[in-house]
Design a protein around this nucleic acid. Structure first.
Lengths: 391, 391
DNA sequence: TGCACTTTGGCAACAGCGTTGCTTAAGTGG
DNA sequence: CCACTTAAGCAACGCTGTTGCCAAAGTGCA
């Protein structure tokens, strides 16, 4: 019965015109609950969960969990995996996600390099390919290179059932339409409908997002409990990905996360962007001067501004510059941030942890794959709202 | 049948322990759809909407809309109100919200004044009371004064069915537990469980929120279409309320919106908070020096930082200082903000409108009442997630 | 005036959802 | 070996939105 349902999540494949508020019906309810249980199964990891535990965590009745997990098992998405120790009665049967049941492609198109991953349902990379890329070359060349690399990772797991591809790019873009906007330094991509082009080239549903957003989305999967954090990415520029309440915040026009051009020095030194005293200019100047400690101090002040404005749980650092000297940056930013917060703290003085983003150089590509997988799982926050980039 | 349901929204009154992701069942589905239609009815205002229009906007079938609106009419929340012109067949029957069917109290406890409103379902004030208040006095005095004022507005509409009270306070607090945290300058309120105390005193469900959040929430109701904006409140201090995707963003610990203590001048002049170069210090210094233009310029730089980080649609200004000279501030901030954005704009150059927040001195109290009313209406964004302050 | 047509909205039957009551399965402990 | 406990499935159920059909209420043309 359920094996013929196109997407196991039950969410509408194309949600039509954006409505102010949407009513819900039974198929949506069913898909929602399935996605919630799938999310809980994934969160449980290899240890698995019993049906009763799923019931407690989801708020569904045990019987409903039994029915829904039976459908998930029919679809091959979940399986029984041993039993718990008995507590005086029949032992609980452990259910586990079947990671290999579905796969997703993650594609990170950077200015000089492309990274492609094939990720399984658990979000783990099954295959990774990395190759030089000239994003400044023409669209046909870039598309062909991307398609070839995607074919390679698909060949690495021939029987993998791929549900879509997530693509991460630098620069402003519109994740709803999948169109690029003025990629800094590469005007030829202005207004290019990359999502549509890639979808046709690959023959797969494609979601497009900014690199920092993809990374932040991927990082959010590692954090249980619908947390919130800011991911600061210091590389050739300084950007941020914001996760608020467990979901990536993209803003009205996918423009959120412009962290680098916040002014922290009124009438300060000019920045390449045309403004003065941008944190990116100050930071990169310090990096160029070989003073990572000063860069970290400035970054910490900006991080404090972000933490106070958004009240996030923690701050994650990533990007090439940070990865080159993680300790200095993590400690420097933590000290600076702590100093700022502590100065304010008339008692409360909460401290916000600063850490290096896990995942290393594949984090963005893996996050892009997660964007696709997210359509299967229940959003930690607004169930029916679903993840913004609908396939 | 439906008149015996405790809350017409169908949402659980107390949601128990916070769960990672929650499953949904039929009562929740029913409540959700009722709330969605109620929201659409309210959005339609006095003009009303037909059943078919409700069906189009909600995505529900016309028959479902008929059933659900029939229940709303039974509960007295909606009523038929005339007909549209015919377009060649039977004319559409217009449905309208019955504003007087329910009411909510809004209570704004400021440092030196309290404002109490009784708002109807449409969010319009039915009665307003304003009185001096010394928030520094003991809790019993403040509670008694609040209770007396609430009794007054209730007496102004004796037959009003009041569903709860929303309370807005300055300073950090926890909106989930309803406990105050270190209200600046009033240490005696530290850790005071204001929500519980007021709920007992008034005999009503109470939601507690920060004043800027309440104002922002109220302002969000006037903006159709799940927009996002930053509300900057310049009074004795400088704070902000953030509305992202139609919902107030409070952060992990209700601490979001600390706009005033973002550093915009590294190693700048010391601020009362202990840091240096806070925008609040710079702004208030300019105000004290009788230079609102400079204050507006600085505010505009901070607003630009916020707009770029969060990609909001617009910026609203409020608070006593702004209300004292709205034109100067609105124009000054708009010019400064535009200058910042235009400098960056390598083409796009979108402009973000700046305007004075409507509502004037009652905006906070009215917003607090809206917090209560929101529990009846469908959240524009995440349906089942519901509004953060659960009654 | 009358008839054809269009559109709205209610009625009744229906499929599908989670829920409830009960039964069976599968252990522990005396 | 039996009483007890806990887990999970089966069947009936209530309720949801949906579908097919029909009455109501207009317009427009003959």
């Amino acid at each position: 019965m359920s094996s013929e349902n196109p997407p196991p999540s039950g969410r509408p494949v194309s949600d039509g015109p954006a409505r102010y508020a949407s009513g819900a019906n039974l198929p949506l309810l069913r898909g929602h609950n399935a996605a919630v249980l799938l999310e809980l199964l994934r969160a449980a990891g290899e240890g698995g969960v019993s049906r009763l535990e799923l019931a407690e965590r989801s708020g569904l009745t045990p019987q409903a969990v039994s029915k829904i997990t039976a459908r998930l098992r029919e679809d091959g998405l979940a399986a029984e995996a041993g039993r718990r120790a008995s507590t005086g009665g029949k032992p609980r049967t452990v259910l586990r996600l079947v990671p290999g049941a579905r796969h997703a492609i993650g594609l990170h198109l950077d200015r000089d390099e492309s990274v492609t991953v094939l990720a399984d349902l658990a979000g783990e990379p099954v295959a990774v390919r990395r190759a030089p890329l000239d994003l400044g070359a023409g669209a046909p060349e870039v598309l062909a290179a991307a398609a070839a690399q995607v074919a390679e990772v698909r060949a690495a797991a021939p029987e993998a059932q791929v549900i879509g591809a997530g693509v991460a790019c630098p620069g402003p873009l519109d994740h709803r339409t999948g169109v690029l906007h003025r990629v800094t330094g590469l005007p030829q991509w202005d207004g290019y409908p990359l999502r549509a082009a890639l979808a046709e080239q690959l023959g797969l549903p494609v979601v497009l997002d900014k690199d920092t957003n993809a990374a932040a989305h991927g990082l959010a999967q590692h954090a249980r409990g619908a947390g919130s954090f800011g991911y600061l990415h210091l590389g050739t520029g300084l950007g941020a990905g914001l996760v608020l309440g467990g979901a990536v915040h993209r803003g009205a026009r996918t423009g959120a996360g412009e962290f680098g051009h916040q002014v922290v020095q009124l009438d300060g030194p000019p920045c390449g962007c045309g403004k003065r005293g941008c944190i990116e200019a100050l930071c990169l100047a310090a990096v160029a001067a070989g003073d990572p400690a000063e860069a970290a101090r400035v970054l910490g002040v900006g991080a404090a501004n972000l933490v106070e404005l958004l009240d996030v749980d923690r701050v994650l650092l990533g990007g090439r510059t940070v990865l080159g000297d993680p300790d200095t940056y993590v400690r420097g930013v933590a000290a600076s941030l702590d100093g700022q917060l502590r100065a304010r703290g008339s008692g409360g003085a909460r401290s916000v942890p600063v850490m290096a983003a896990p995942g290393g150089p594949d984090a963005v590509a893996l996050g892009a794959a997660h964007l696709v997988l997210a359509s299967l799982f229940g959003a930690p926050q607004g169930p029916f709202a679903g993840p913004p980039p609908v396939i």
